[in-house]
Amino acid sequence: MATYGYARVSTSDQDLTIQETALRAAGCQVVRSEKASGATRRGRRELEILMDFLQPDDTLMVTRIDRLARSMKDLQDIVHDLRARGVSLRATEQPIDTASAAGQAFLDMLGVFAQFETNLRRERQMEGIRAAKARGVYRGRPPSVDRAEIRRLHAGGLGAARIARQLGIGRSSVYRALELANAARHQNEAHHE
């Protein structure tokens, strides 16, 4: 019967110290920390390690529930997984303790609000992008793939897998670049007819 802490921040320039200190002060023998988005469980290696390690009657502790998950589905999946294994979830800054009905109800409400906040942030971001595009100042992320080089290598007889290996990119990126080149060529041919 042990208490394990999980601390998370979203970006590499954020500091984990406050969360780690609070978790240790709350009795966590082990604290796993990572800098990763909470929008999904994918790619969160420290959380995965903790989830694999937890045993019945253990407690997983976070400072706030949004440190664990920002998506209602992920939160529900994590809580379901913990409950099935006899592990409780607690938060140091919120009245969450899944061992009680009131704590579980509060957790469910917070999960809804975390999802709502994530959706609002995404909407604001998309509105900002649309406004920037309308003003002509948004160009998007610079291309990470040299499409001209892909076309040149393909014209030289190389297949997608070999081009991908040579350029250090995924095959899907090669296929996408070739599809874009073909679509542009067909559009250009149709325009000249």
Results as ranks from 00 to 15, higher is better:
residue 4 Y to Q: 03
residue 9 V to E: 00
residue 10 S to W: 10
residue 11 T to S: 11
residue 13 D to A: 14
residue 14 Q to G: 01
residue 18 I to Q: 14
residue 19 Q to W: 03
residue 21 T to Q: 12
residue 22 A to Q: 11
residue 24 R to E: 02
residue 29 Q to T: 14
residue 30 V to C: 06
residue 31 V to E: 00
residue 32 R to C: 07
residue 33 S to V: 08
residue 35 K to C: 00
residue 36 A to N: 04
residue 43 G to A: 04
residue 43 G to K: 06
residue 44 R to E: 02
residue 48 E to W: 02
residue 51 M to W: 00
residue 51 M to N: 07
residue 51 M to A: 15
residue 52 D to T: 11
residue 56 P to F: 04
residue 57 D to L: 05
residue 59 T to G: 05
residue 59 T to I: 13
residue 60 L to I: 08
residue 64 R to I: 03
residue 64 R to K: 15
residue 66 D to E: 01
residue 68 L to E: 04
residue 69 A to K: 04
residue 71 S to G: 08
residue 72 M to S: 15
residue 72 M to L: 15
residue 73 K to Y: 13
residue 73 K to C: 08
residue 73 K to P: 01
residue 73 K to S: 14
residue 75 L to A: 11
residue 77 D to C: 04
residue 78 I to W: 01
residue 80 H to P: 00
residue 81 D to F: 11
residue 85 R to P: 08
residue 86 G to K: 08
residue 86 G to F: 06
residue 88 S to H: 05
residue 89 L to H: 00
residue 95 P to T: 12
residue 95 P to R: 10
residue 96 I to G: 06
residue 97 D to T: 11
residue 99 A to D: 13
residue 99 A to N: 08
residue 100 S to R: 05
residue 103 G to F: 04
residue 103 G to I: 10
residue 105 A to T: 14
residue 107 L to K: 10
residue 111 G to Q: 08
residue 121 R to N: 10
residue 122 R to K: 13
residue 126 M to N: 10
residue 129 I to R: 07
residue 131 A to Q: 10
residue 131 A to D: 10
residue 134 A to P: 06
residue 136 G to F: 00
residue 139 R to A: 09
residue 140 G to I: 03
residue 143 P to R: 15
residue 144 S to M: 09
residue 151 R to P: 00
residue 154 H to F: 12
residue 154 H to E: 06
residue 158 L to K: 14
residue 160 A to C: 09
residue 162 R to P: 01
residue 163 I to V: 08
residue 164 A to I: 00
residue 167 L to E: 07
residue 167 L to D: 05
residue 168 G to F: 00
residue 170 G to L: 04
residue 171 R to Q: 12
residue 172 S to H: 08
residue 176 R to E: 10
residue 177 A to N: 09
residue 178 L to M: 11
residue 180 L to N: 13
residue 181 A to Q: 11
residue 183 A to Y: 04
residue 187 Q to A: 14
residue 188 N to D: 10
residue 191 H to P: 02
residue 191 H to A: 15
residue 192 H to L: 09
residue 193 E to D: 11
